[in-house]
Nucleic acid binder design. Structure first.
Length: 943
RNA sequence: GGGCCUGUAGCUCAGGUGGCUAGAGCGCGCCCCUGAUAAGGGCGAGGUCGACUGUUCAAGUCAGUCCAGGCCCA
């Protein structure tokens, strides 16, 4: 008589409260609140109190608006560095910062003031800027935390903090004291109407009608030219300009070194130097008609030639400049270093004076009577007339073109050389020493070194002064009597103390007498001083953050990580400031991430509406999905973003989540301390999977070491999908579900699953910070487990594989190959309707040689590995198997038939033994054993 | 225009020092399962390796030119 029993209840199906649906947008904030309550960041650092330091230094973003995808990418990468280093056993604090001073905030505040800037005091204006920055710091901080980034959010560094401003001022004083800082002239945009310097961002291009004149400079001498006196008449260089007023400041004529020039003769025998590519245009736009041309010469021959200024007693040298083009003019550019940015650099290169004889209103303060005392725009026609009188004018017209205007008053602006502070890169070999230091830094990717080297090698002196308010003032005093700089550094450092107390605001609210110690005197004996009005370039400030933030053994930083724009920006400014102050680089490693692009590969932009906000992405997909986006691609190159990508990643995420969920469901009731199987009792397959996991761990740890996060992700994901979900876990189902709960073989499977999951969840924790924690909380606890996955250490190889374990790995690799062949055969059988489920199949294998031996010795495993009911192994006589075996692969001939016997009601395998038991006529022999085990343990009362 | 970088299947990635019919996962198509179930499994179709020209017995891999795109300058 058959026993009546609910067979289903004897099957161990997975059970877990770990939800299949992630609902990240809802669940993540709860996790954040929990972490906040636990003080996770402090606890992590506490747990690494005596660990070796990994000093990461955060590059400060600018708080003017919502954080963008690029900022999100930046911070997530940094967080992965910090978290992975923490899990690798380092003490890795993260102190986020903001770059608070500078023009963008000034202009926003100015806009709010609606043109009433001049009605508020500098101190009041600064107060408004501070309030503005504070508002966005708070907003950004909220968004960053939402991304799962751990750090010292309650005490970030702000460049506008008093202590920070004091460090910046101190750094400048060090530069001044060591002799790096000097005062020189440099052209800046200047508004004549408002009598003020303008930043690049403050000019707007509007149409403007300028004179367009063609003038000739007599050639005094051209030593590199073979022909000394071409033609029968005069010898000229022909020049075109739209700013006649810059001619009094004309100091050189610039040629392009590689362009071709001709000596073109006109009827009366005069000869003109003109770029070959402009000859026709010149004849169209001037009265000149060329009748004869010389051979071509390269522009470089005119370097060092001498030309006579058309109306001043001045001989101008020929110089070379790459920016000379054939788009307009004659291919020869009159160069006024005091009135043009390019001209200025050329002037610097050739050691030519930066001459700009104008006052604040743009009036000539020296020069000929024809224009002296007039403003530049008034002077234009008079200078043109002067040229004509001197016989230098060969063409005149009007030109309407795009010209820079003041954004406030909309008058045309000019370039005007003004006094500025510079850092001298030649002084004390600053440039050379910096170049040497660049070689010592490790660059990720490696091309960073070359990029930085070139930039530092070729950059001009650093202009560090700005004519603004919202920043740290240059701590410089001038003697009211003799005008000399105060160089009493003990006295100057008194100002730093003021800054520590009151911030840089002190500069604007206190007099020189208050800021300096009583009794401070100039060398001339006077004791009255005037404060410098300029503030420091904000890049000097951000370049000083390493000095302010990295204390003691945390300086220099182990790593900086920023976008590619920071080679010119923060990477460089930090390097130069640290070189000047401490004589070495402030970082050991530089990691660069790419730019964020849209699906078409174009830069994200707010105006085009392609800008994605991390906050919105978190609301729609969740922070872990954004982090998955960061990790799925190689962040060291440009990063594309699209909705399609996100939905694909969501699929990947689901797979990861479900695979972990499967483990958790099958570990239901599993207590590692009580149920784990000893190393030497693990089934061979389980031991092998631990070995494979160990290999994966080694690879992932190495990739984390070199910050190759996307490699970690792809490897983990592939392992999870292919090795675990599709193979191992699928195979394990039979053992987990149908074996008795306490059966050793089942416990062996659980032990392996537990150890693998514990390793994987830690490896993935820096990436999926929320999900990993969620899994960690549901994973069975072992003694000594960290309360948070983020406090845990990465798994090690030794943790998974004991050297004593028998190594049968090669056998298993071969069995995997056999499985692959079998799966194809099973698919054929399915398609021909021979079987549906693989369990309906019986696979007949024939092999020879080593493969035959292997298959025979693993005969008991084969049905499980293939998830079929029966496998038979026989010796092959055909040539097929042996040839394949010769190629190195384990190969067998195989055929699929319908399995013998009946389907077991409990385990669904087919067996000829079903029906042999009177008690359980629908069960197979394996299930009879299992039931017996279950019944006996039930009798002992230990469910 | 210059410096630096990127360009392998629809998507995201692998492919030391050049060497068999260029790999993976996802997606897609077809099929199976219904004891991971708004899950799970299998098979399959997709690439002239940005283009061209060289070097070589042999090039995704080396060299040159060009094209497309990015960062920073001008």
């Amino acid at each position: 008589m058959a026993k009546s029993i609910d067979l289903k209840s004897t099957i161990n199906l997975p059970r877990t409260s770990f939800p299949m649906k992630a609902q990240l947008p809802q669940r993540e904030p709860q996790q954040l609140a929990e972490w906040e309550e636990q003080g996770i960041y402090r606890r992590i650092l506490e747990s690494r109190k005596n660990a070796p330091i990994f000093s990461f230094h955060d590059g400060p973003p600018y708080p003017t608006g919502d954080i963008h995808l690029g900022t999100g990418l930046n911070k997530i990468c940094k967080d992965m560095v910090v978290k992975s280093k923490t899990m690798a056993g380092f003490r890795a604090p993260y102190i986020p910062g903001w770059d608070c001073h500078g023009l963008p905030i000034e202009t926003k505040v100015e806009k709010d003031l609606g043109g009433k800037k001049h009605s508020v005091s500098a101190a009041e204006f600064r107060r408004m800027c501070r309030a503005f920055a504070t508002k966005y710091v708070d907003q950004n901080r909220r968004d960053f935390k939402r991304l799962g980034i751990f750090g010292q959010w309650d005490h970030p560094y702000l460049t506008m903090d008093p202590e920070h401003e004091a460090v910046i001022a101190e750094a400048f004083l060090t530069f001044l004291e060591k002799g790096y800082a000097y005062k020189g002239l440099k052209p800046v945009y200047w508004c004549l109407h408002d009598r003020t310097a303008l930043a690049e961002a403050e000019v707007e291009y509007e149409n403007h009608t300028s004179p367009s004149i063609w003038i000739r400079y007599k050639v005094e001498e051209a030593p590199n030219l073979k022909v000394k006196r071409p033609g029968g008449g005069e010898f000229y260089a022909l020049v075109w300009t739209t700013t006649p007023w810059t001619l009094p400041a004309s100091m050189a004529l610039a040629f392009h070194p590689d362009l071709e020039y001709v000596l073109a003769e006109v009827e009366n025998g005069d000869v003109y130097i003109v770029a070959k590519g402009r000859v026709n245009a010149v004849q169209e736009e001037t009265s000149l008609k060329f009748v004869k041309f010389s051979e071509l010469v390269r522009g470089k021959v005119f370097e060092g030639a001498k030309f006579k200024h058309p109306f001043l007693e001045r001989i101008e040298p020929g110089v070379l400049a790459e920016y000379v083009t054939l788009e307009q003019g004659t291919g020869i550019v009159h160069t006024a270093p005091g009135h043009g940015a390019e001209d200025f650099y050329t002037g610097q290169k050739y050691g030519i004076e930066t001459y700009a004889p104008l006052d604040d209103e743009g009036r000539f303060v020296e020069g000929l009577l024809e224009y002296k005392g007039k403003t530049v725009f008034e002077a234009n026609p008079f200078i043109t007339q002067l040229l004509e009188e001197r016989g230098a004018l060969v063409g005149e017209a009007k030109l309407t073109h795009s010209y820079p205007h003041c954004w406030r008053c909309h008058n045309p602006v000019i370039f005007r050389a003004t006094e500025q502070w510079f850092i001298d890169l030649q002084h004390d070999q600053l440039r050379e020493r910096t170049l040497a230091e660049i070689e010592k830094v490790k660059w990720f990717p490696a091309w960073g070194e070359e990029r930085m080297r070139k930039m530092v090698a070729e950059r001009p002196d650093w202009c560090i002064s700005r004519q603004r308010f919202w920043g740290v003032p240059l701590v410089v005093f001038y003697c009211e009597k003799c005008g000399e700089l105060l160089r009493d550094f003990r006295a100057l450092r008194n100002v730093v103390k003021w800054f520590e107390k009151e911030g840089a605001d002190a500069w604007f609210t206190h007099s020189a007498a208050e800021l300096l110690p009583a009794g401070t005197k100039c060398k001339c004996g006077a004791s009255e001083f005037r404060k410098e009005k300029d503030i420091l370039d904000v890049w000097f400030e951000s370049g000083s953050t390493n000095l302010a933030v990295l204390k003691g053994e945390f300086w220099p930083a182990d790593a900086y990580l920023e976008g590619p724009d920071q080679y010119r920006g923060w990477f460089q400014s930090s390097l130069l400031v640290a070189m000047g102050v401490r004589g070495r680089a402030p970082y050991k490693q530089i990691i660069t991430h790419g730019w964020t692009l849209d699906a078409e590969g174009r830069p994200m932009s707010k105006s085009k509406g392609t800008g994605e906000l991390p906050a919105e992405i978190c609301e729609k997909w969740g922070a872990d999905l954004l982090r998955l986006w960061v990790t799925s691609q190689d962040y060291q190159t440009d990063m594309r973003f699209s909705e399609a990508m996100m939905s694909q990643l969501a699929e990947s995420y689901r797979k990861i989540r479900n695979t972990f969920r499967f483990v958790l469901g099958n570990l239901n009731g599993f207590d590692p301390a009580r149920d784990a199987v000893a190393e030497n009792e693990l089934l061979e397959m389980d031991a092998w999977m631990l070995h494979r996991t160990a290999e994966l761990i080694e690879k992932c740890r190495a990739w984390y070491d070199e910050y190759a996060f996307h490699r970690v992700f792809h490897a983990l994901y592939d392992f999870l999908v292919v090795d675990l979900s599709a193979f191992y876990f699928d195979v394990l189902k039979d053992r987990l579900y149908t074996f008795a709960r306490h059966n050793k073989a089942r416990r062996s499977a659980q032990t392996a699953m537990y150890r693998i999951a514990s390793a994987l969840v830690r490896l993935i924790a820096p990436i999926l910070v929320f999900t990993a924690e969620e899994v960690w909380k549901s994973l069975p606890r072992a003694a000594g487990d960290a309360p948070s996955v983020h406090m845990a250490l990465f798994p090690t190889r030794e943790e998974l594989v004991h050297s004593a374990s028998p190594n049968k790995n090669e056998n298993w690799e071969s069995l995997l190959q056999v499985r692959e062949q079998a799966l194809k055969k099973l698919e054929e059988a399915r398609n021909s309707k021979l079987i549906n489920s693989a369990l309906e199949a019986r696979v007949e294998m024939r092999a020879s040689g080593k493969t035959l031996d292997l298959l025979k010795s693993y005969a008991a495993w084969l049905p499980q590995i293939l998830i079929v009911s029966q496998v038979s192994v026989a010796s092959a006589n055909g040539a097929h198997a042996s040839s394949a075996a010769a190629a190195g692969a384990a190969a067998a001939e195989m055929e699929v038939r319908h399995a013998d016997g009946k389907k077991c009601e409990r385990c669904w395998n087919y067996s000829v033994h079903v029906g042999e038991s009177a008690d359980y006529p629908t069960l197979c022999e394996r299930c009879l054993v299992a039931i017996a085990e279950i019944e006996s343990s039930a009798n002992r009362g230990s469910a």
